[in-house]
């Protein structure tokens, strides 16, 4: 990647919805190439900056699926602000592990975890108004907003994220081929 002193840097926002931050760990797993990336990229809203709301951005990276009302608001904020929105990892693409509850009744799930579980004495389903409302099903993000690109993997390797971002920033059509394209 060419040095771009004087060029406006590409603005990138990232977030984790119903995810485990594994994809963000993979982003950091680029090791020293992060320094090269930092020359051409600046971060907007992201767990890395702790900025709470997304401003106008070039690229939005979404980890995790949509499991509650807050996820929907965050995802729509990203879609409004990001020119290119990217689903990163299995959960953003097909719901992933959280979606394994999708064939179960949500009420039954909550009862089992917070009321009926062994060892719980005075259980109760948490109902603090601060808690985001759970959706009956976990959705891949493309079921809620339009998504421009998908980077599969659980998590995608740092190598795959690097290849994708450098392609996109370099003006090439991003393409992940074997063996960077993988679902596990």
């Amino acid at each position: 990647m060419s040095d771009s002193i004087g060029m406006p840097r590409v603005r990138v926002a990232t977030t984790s919805l119903a995810g485990c931050f594994g994809c963000h760990m993979s982003l950091l797993d680029m090791d020293e190439r992060l320094l090269e990336l930092a020359k051409v990229v600046e971060f907007d809203r992201s767990p890395l900056t702790d900025i709470k709301h997304c401003g106008p951005c070039d690229i939005g990276l979404i980890e995790g699926g949509v499991c509650n009302a807050e996820n929907v608001h965050v995802l729509r904020e990203f879609r409004r602000n990001c020119k290119t929105l990217v689903a990163v990892g299995a959960c953003a693409i097909n719901g992933g592990l959280p979606a394994q509850r999708n064939h179960l009744d949500l009420g039954d799930c909550l009862q089992q975890v917070y009321v009926k579980r062994d060892g719980i004495e005075e259980g109760g389903v948490p109902d603090d108004p601060e808690l985001p409302l759970l959706l009956d099903r976990v959705h891949p993000i493309h079921e809620v907003v339009r998504v421009d690109y998908f980077i599969p993997g659980c998590p995608p390797s740092g190598e795959a994220i690097w290849k994708f971002l450098t392609d996109l920033i370099g003006g090439r059509t991003p393409r992940l081929a074997h063996p960077l394209l993988r679902f596990d």
């Binding site: 693409i93 719901g95 999708n102 891949p140 690109y149 998908f150 980077i151 394209l181």
Partner: peptide, 14 residues
């Protein structure tokens, strides 16, 4: 992988 499928595109049935 062979056919470059990066997402399932349609709504999942679960």
């Amino acid at each position: 992988y062979e056919l470059d499928m990066s997402s399932a595109r349609f709504a999942h049935f679960y």
